[in-house]
Design a protein around this nucleic acid. Structure first.
Lengths: 181, 181
DNA sequence: AGCGACATGTAAGCGGTTACATGATTCT
DNA sequence: AGAATCATGTAACCGCTTACATGTCGCT
């Protein structure tokens, strides 16, 4: 279960609530995984049943209580063992490619329009990822005193940047071919 | 539902059984989507309830009967309308990147081993995709009399090739950085 | 007065996987 | 005799999404 182990990895830095985890997710692993809040809460319950984490209520004045999860020894072992064993290659799904495959059954105008939209979406992502690489990584690493993590975080973001660039280039070449046809 | 529409698109070429669809899937859309047999059968039932397809039993001597699905007028309209409307950008999940993100919590040896395994997996895919581009596309297009589809099929496969190359290059650069460190 | 952020959850339903079940034919 | 392929499915389960529910604080 990659989600559970991703949460475990984040909690291993410091104790976090479900809500915290959602925002930690959004500013880090989100490039290559995502999780809704209900899914995070449910996974945390399972993790507590497995004794990978322990929860405690933190009272706050003027704000709703926080349920904060911290990692257990068993959780640290689980994380270590998951990280060390290789994974099968996951199937990468992309419904736009289904449309491209059936492109001959489409109006060419529609296909071109959709490729343009997709290229813009990747361009937006690319800009976001580039700012993460030049700003966010350093800011968060400094805040968490995580100098040694920077290299790995940069490599993750670098893959996101390469992925976005690759798709933009593919859209460019597809549009060129379709428009001159 | 991309799966239902992918099946619809395949059935639109010619009437097919669930079993046929599984193998048609494996030699085409599989690069960017996948489907298990039970999932295909269940989706076909839903599609029949929606009246997108009609089924008929084809008796064979010496072999089990085939349940063959053909597209209806309603199904053709549904396919056309799905193809023409733009899609949201789907979240691309990649659990290996979760591991990279937590690389500082891993044995470096394990991380390097897993990157090597992943690079090999993508190299295998790349060789497979390249042979699809140079051989399979033409063979299938000739068999189905689908000369005008070739361009779109090639563009789909081209994206798969670019994706595999991109990941291989990223693995190369990550391994280089980690090994000299 | 109303909106958005903070904070935690439940319930219903869908999409998908894995294991199980059946049975004939063909190849080794 | 046994394995692989053709062919169709059911049942149980898991992961995830969407809609719903509740309540506070701070800002405009």
């Amino acid at each position: 279960m990659p989600l559970a182990h991703a949460l475990l990895g984040l909690i291993n830095y410091k104790a976090l609530s479900g809500y915290d985890l959602k925002s930690a997710f959004n500013s880090s692993i989100n490039m290559f995984w995502d999780a809704s809040l209900p899914q995070i809460y449910r996974t945390l319950h399972q993790m507590e049943k497995n004794e990978w984490v322990r929860s405690s209520i933190e009272e706050q004045n003027g704000k709703p209580n926080r349920k904060v999860y911290e990692i257990s020894v068993k959780g640290k072992e689980e994380l270590r063992s998951w990280l060390s064993e290789p994974l099968d290659l996951m199937h990468e799904k992309n419904p736009l490619m289904i449309k491209m495959f059936f492109g001959n059954q489409m109006d060419k105008k529609d296909l071109i329009r959709q490729l343009n939209i997709r290229r813009d979406q990747y361009r937006t992502n690319l800009r976001k990822y580039e700012s993460v690489l030049t700003e966010t990584v350093d800011r968060i690493a400094d805040k968490l005193n995580a100098e040694n993590d920077k290299l790995f975080w940069r490599l993750t973001v670098d893959c996101g940047i390469r992925r976005a660039k690759m798709f933009i280039e593919w859209c460019d070449s597809a549009l060129e071919l379709l428009e001159k046809e």
